[in-house]
Design a protein around this nucleic acid. Structure first.
Lengths: 202, 202
DNA sequence: CACTCGCCATACGCCAGAGTATGGAAAACT
DNA sequence: AGTTTTCCATACTCTGGCGTATGGCGAGTG
């Protein structure tokens, strides 16, 4: 697989030879910028100052690269989510951080946004399904820990996740107030007040 | 323009000659099924049992067709919205119908969903912006009529529209309960209870 | 009846990206 | 040192869509 690169763990390209991981990272960057369908192999190669010849040594096809890149992204995202579960004790703070983290992890976020836009793509769909289930489960659990009965918590989780997805959509349309404006703060506080019940066991 | 078709107002193709409107309708159908980028001119022609030769007589380019089709769709959508304002007196009923109408107007809805997925496209973006503003204005007005102060109503409108967009996203991912299931009814009632204030002047 | 004009078919040229074939250079091994 | 392996460049083919050019045919019109 990568006996050579194992000697050079600092996964940055040392301007000598490229690894499959380099292609995957570049692929995710391109997806973040221009969407899944723009993740073409020749444009990628040009941007990396290289040719297709390299690509087809590391991967068998474009489909294969997309698959690997998606798996890498999904792993990263799942780790992020469970980290939130471990680090933040109070469920209410977890819920709030769910919204406040919209600005952080820029690249990961933009990739997700583009994946949403590419729902319907056969390779993207299952990823989105798993991610949505994980996140809604995360939300439902938090709501339950705040005292909601299970059914209510599930509905509330779906609603909350929809709000999040809708915000991403508006963001793609450039219809969201800039993150550090008063309008944004006013809105996000309204969202929190509407969707997140007040403290119960803090 | 369409001197001949003016004699045949029943805008269906009478298997004689096609009009520009026929192309626009077919374009919207294809967009509804496979998205904006799939609205290619040769596939369209094949589906209509015809060749490109016809297309370039009616339109100057693919861009032109897309423009016309989008304008036609936007008009239709705007009429739908203002019809709701005219027909439904009570603002609360208007808000409820906003959600309950998710299933109706199937084609128009699917087109909108695909347009959302294609935000970022230079021709689609302004359409989405106008539509979003119209709809959020519609919502904000209704909320104000229910007694909300303006600022609150605007935030609530954005929130409500986000929920709607998020639902469309989940629908594209096939993550929504079937429209006539108990789970769906349970959810939509939860949404209404959460987002729409109880009656004030009914 | 000839003639024009609206509508469409056929046949191009062009471009961009996917995938293949092969060769070459540098590093790694023995 | 010589050989193998790794990684990449070059040069194809192929597919699919865009746009153009041109010709044909039927329906009106004088």
């Amino acid at each position: 697989m990568s006996a050579r690169t194992a000697v050079k763990p600092p996964q940055r390209n040392e301007r000598s030879t490229l690894s499959a991981a380099d292609w995957e990272r570049a692929a995710l960057e391109l997806i973040a910028e221009k969407g899944v369908q723009a993740m073409a192999i020749e444009p990628l190669a040009r941007r990396m100052g290289i040719t297709k010849g390299s690509f087809y040594w590391h991967f068998s096809s474009r489909e294969s690269l997309l698959q690997q890149a998606l798996e890498r992204w999904e792993e990263h995202d799942a780790r992020n989510l469970s980290a939130s579960l471990g680090e933040i004790d109070h469920p209410r703070d977890r819920l709030i951080s769910f919204f406040r983290r919209v600005g952080k992890e820029k690249l990961t976020h933009e990739v997700f946004s583009e994946l949403c836009a590419a729902a319907g793509h056969p390779q993207v769909e299952p990823v989105l399904e798993r991610v949505a289930n994980r996140r809604m489960q995360h939300l439902a659990t938090s709501f339950q820990e705040m005292g909601m009965p299970e059914e209510l918590a599930k509905n509330q989780a779906r609603l909350t996740y929809s709000v999040y997805l809708g915000y991403l959509q508006l963001q793609r349309q450039h219809q969201t107030p800039s993150l550090r404006s008063g309008e944004f703060e006013s809105y996000i506080e309204h969202v929190i007040a509407t969707l997140i019940p007040p403290c119960s066991n803090s």
